[in-house]
Design a protein around this nucleic acid. Structure first.
Length: 211
DNA sequence: AGCACGATTAACT
DNA sequence: GTTAATCGTGCTC
């Protein structure tokens, strides 16, 4: 696979807003029993440090948040609402707690496995939410703390199709209803516009087919 | 030891 | 638009 390379630690060791924006169009890959499950990242949110009251780390270092204080390039997988798991990537230098929440992907590989997990939902609803994609990829507490940059890791991100600014919108982060301003309204959510998602998914498929 | 809350989703009305 | 489902986490007692 010469066209796709695994993102290295330097990618994640940067300002979280940059990482969140750049993750759009990258390919999230999960190897499960030798099978590749993957999807194009189409939505991501930045959570930045203890001063960000929307970030779990605003309570400081706890067993739950300690992964965010660790080195960049690791997975932070947390449980919420009594039933859902959400996937984040730790960013910035070790000691500074920050992460990017992956909110949506466009499925590319392992469609049958994903379909089986998300049935009877229609394909458009398979992975268009943070807990939906963890369900589709079978991710949970087992993956918390996983090093995405370890070559042996079965969860990582590959270079995909860069998304131009015209195709990207941003907005306030979702679900921070009880978080005070200004954190509640910080436009730290990045989305690939829907009409562009189709275009870039097709490009990826074409490249895969011709390689 | 007990309790309120939540970076959500699906199934309702 | 409303609500129930459901449990890890962190805070209080």
């Amino acid at each position: 696979m010469s066209f796709s390379e695994r993102l290295d630690r330097a990618f994640f060791d940067r300002p979280t807003l940059i990482v969140a924006r750049q993750l759009l169009g990258m390919r999230l890959v999960r190897i499960e029993q030798g099978q590749r499950l993957s999807g194009l990242i189409t939505e991501a949110e930045a959570y930045i440090g203890e001063s960000d009251l929307g970030c779990h780390a605003h309570v400081g270092r706890t067993p739950r948040t300690q992964v965010m204080y660790g080195p960049p390039g690791h997975a932070y997988v947390y449980f919420t609402y009594g039933m859902h798991w959400c996937l984040n990537f730790v960013t910035e230098q070790e000691g500074f707690p920050a992460a990017v929440l992956i909110r949506a992907i466009q499925p590319l590989e392992g469609l049958e496995t994903i379909a089986a997990r998300r049935a009877p939902q229609p394909p458009a609803l398979w992975t268009n939410g943070p807990a939906k994609l963890t369900q589709a990829l079978n991710l949970d507490r087992r993956h918390n703390g996983l090093d995405l940059c370890d070559p042996a890791s079965e969860l990582f991100v590959e270079t995909g199709e860069p998304i131009p600014d015209e195709c990207v919108t941003n907005s306030p982060r979702v679900g921070l209803n009880s978080v005070p301003e200004p954190w509640k309204s910080m436009p730290w959510r990045f989305l690939v516009q829907e009409h562009c998602t189709t275009e870039y998914t097709e490009k990826i498929k074409e490249r895969s087919a011709s390689s």
